[in-house]
Simulated assay, not measured.
Amino acid sequence: MLDDLDRRILRHMQADPTLSSPDMADRLGLTVSRLSRRLDKLSETGVLRGQRAVINWQALGYAVEVSLRVTLDKTQTRAFDDFIIAARDIAEVIEIQTFLGRVDVRLSVIARDMAHYQQIYRTRILTLPHIADIEALMLVSRVKSDESLPL
């Protein structure tokens, strides 16, 4: 269970992920060693899964994002497993989600332009196993994209 200090630490990490441990400890009124012990505890309990760089793929020339809703042929016992294993191998697939309902899987696919997307779609996506139906949704704008939690 998180206490108030844990929540304060997490709020500071979300607000400024580049904050050094000494600076964060100073802002929280802690010693660096006490902050370090708390961070270790948050990692050990699975609250913190690590730190990562968030790369703006548009700045690297990827201008197109498409969300693919995929329905699998569930008469095949390994449909989910085979599909996901193969989809993970497509570098331009940046997210894979599974669902209960009419849609089984959602893929987020990025491409440099529409010609690049069509090439990925025809040569990589349509060759994925066990697809019964697929629907493409072209991203127009991202209204909200926030990984911060209300702590």
Rank of each mutant, 00 (worst) to 15 (best):
S148N: 10
R88Q: 05
T31V: 14
L126H: 03
A87M: 03
V140M: 02
S36G: 11
L35P: 04
Y117R: 00
G46K: 02
T31N: 09
L149A: 11
N56K: 04
A15L: 10
D40R: 03
R52Y: 07
L100E: 13
A91E: 14
K144F: 00
S141W: 05
R37H: 14
E65N: 08
P17K: 02
A53N: 11
H130T: 15
P129T: 10
S141D: 13
T123S: 13
S36Y: 00
M1R: 05
S33Q: 12
V54C: 04
V47M: 02
E65L: 01
V93Q: 06
E95Y: 00
F83A: 13
R88K: 08
R122Y: 06
A111N: 06
Q119L: 05
R11G: 09
I120D: 02
Q118F: 00
S67V: 04
S43G: 13
A91V: 15
F80V: 12
D73R: 03
A53P: 05
L68K: 00
L151T: 11
R49P: 05
E65A: 05
P17H: 07
Q119D: 15
S145Q: 12
S108W: 00
L100R: 03
R27A: 14
Q14I: 07
R27E: 13
I9H: 02
A79K: 06
A79L: 09
M13L: 14
R106V: 15
S145G: 07
T18C: 05
R37S: 08
M1L: 08
T18H: 08
A91S: 10
R49A: 10
I84E: 04
E65D: 05
D3E: 05
A15K: 04
I90D: 07
L42R: 01
T98I: 11
I90G: 04
D146S: 08
L151K: 00
Q14F: 08
L5N: 07
A53K: 11
S36E: 07
Q51P: 00
P150S: 13
I125P: 01
D23F: 01
L100N: 08
T77H: 01
V64T: 03
D89S: 14
D81A: 12
A136Q: 10
V47H: 01
L137M: 10
L5K: 03
A63L: 09
S21K: 03
R122G: 09
R102A: 15
A91K: 06
S33W: 04
L151D: 11
V64E: 07
S108H: 10
H130A: 12
I96D: 08
I96M: 04
I125L: 03
E44Q: 09
L149G: 05
R7M: 09
D81M: 09
V70R: 01
A91N: 13
R27L: 10
I134V: 11
I9M: 06
L30K: 00
